[in-house]
């Protein structure tokens, strides 16, 4: 019951905001601010209308939306793989980390969009450059969080595993990584939002395909309707990717109790004797 009302409540406010936006923009009639209805309508014609005017996925989906999204997800996945592996290795060695910690913290603090000229210089304009820039920017939060998580393994669990003569691979796979998982996921989420930013940024120069390129082109052509449509699309992509990652996280961290669940579990065990 409360769940249902919560659900309607959420969407109600969202829809109300949408309606208000519609009314305000329609009333002001400003070219900079098209109404949400116009934006949706335009987005439909951009992405869901084929060349002959019928319904279907447009060329823009295959030439702009999918390649851009694939680069963001791909770069992020590369960063995740490298970051977790390297982080798990470095987190086990305190001295090893001391050599590289300031450097990594520095890389994390670098505003990666400013590195775009460097990456263009080194790799050239192209998919490889974009992918590398995204991966480079996404690595640091995952890496640092993995190191943190791996270090936070409880001393009693360490002793327990040692007292059972646990071999190294089992120790890493079944104790260290699960213990570090909540932190790793926090890093992955941060990285994902960075990946979406860099997806846009990496397309701002050189080429004319991709989400970011279209956004800039629309602005340069004073095509505010398209600009808005692309901005909304980026928001939706960010939202969906985040949602997907949350679903994976929820599954992977299923074992983690919420405070409410712990409280109710205690109640039932007490009541049951």
């Amino acid at each position: 019951m409360s769940r249902l009302s919560g659900f309607t409540n959420r969407w109600l406010v969202f829809l109300t905001a949408l309606v208000l936006w519609q009314l305000a923009t329609a009333a002001s009639d400003n070219v900079f601010f098209p109404t949400p209805w116009q934006i949706i309508h335009h987005g439909w014609s951009l992405w869901f209308t084929t060349a002959d005017g019928g319904f279907g996925l447009s060329d823009s989906i295959f030439e702009d939306v999918l390649p851009s999204t694939a680069r963001a997800v791909g770069g992020w996945a590369i960063a995740a793989a490298i970051g977790i592996t390297l982080g798990a290795a470095l987190g086990r060695s305190r001295t090893g980390m001391q050599y590289v910690e300031p450097l990594f913290a520095f890389f994390r603090a670098l505003p990666s969009p400013a590195l775009l000229p460097v990456f263009i210089g080194l790799i050239g304009i192209g998919s490889d450059m974009k992918l590398s820039l995204i991966a480079f920017s996404c690595i640091w939060p995952v890496l640092m969080n993995t190191v943190d998580g791996v270090r936070s393994v409880d001393s009693v669990k360490t002793d327990t595993a040692r007292s059972f003569g646990t071999p190294r691979t089992q120790w890493v796979a079944m104790v260290v990584l699960p213990a570090a998982l909540p932190k790793i996921f926090a890093g992955l989420r941060l990285s994902l939002s960075i990946a979406v930013i860099l997806m846009v940024v990496s397309e701002l120069v050189g080429e004319s395909s991709g989400i970011g390129a279209n956004l800039v082109d629309a602005k340069a052509a004073f095509d505010f309707l398209s600009m808005w449509a692309w901005i909304v699309l980026i928001g939706i992509i960010g939202y969906v990717l985040n949602l997907a990652l949350l679903a994976v996280e929820r599954r992977a961290l299923r074992w983690q109790p919420t405070r409410a669940a712990v409280a109710s579990a205690k109640q039932t065990t007490k009541a049951g004797g």
């Binding site: 939002s193 979406v196 930013i197 956004l215 800039v216 629309a218 980026i234 960010g238 939202y239």
Partner: peptide, 12 residues
């Protein structure tokens, strides 16, 4: 919905 919109997308 607002949170995942990357700030750079809002630059234009």
């Amino acid at each position: 919905f607002l949170r995942p919109i990357p700030p750079v997308a809002l630059i234009p």
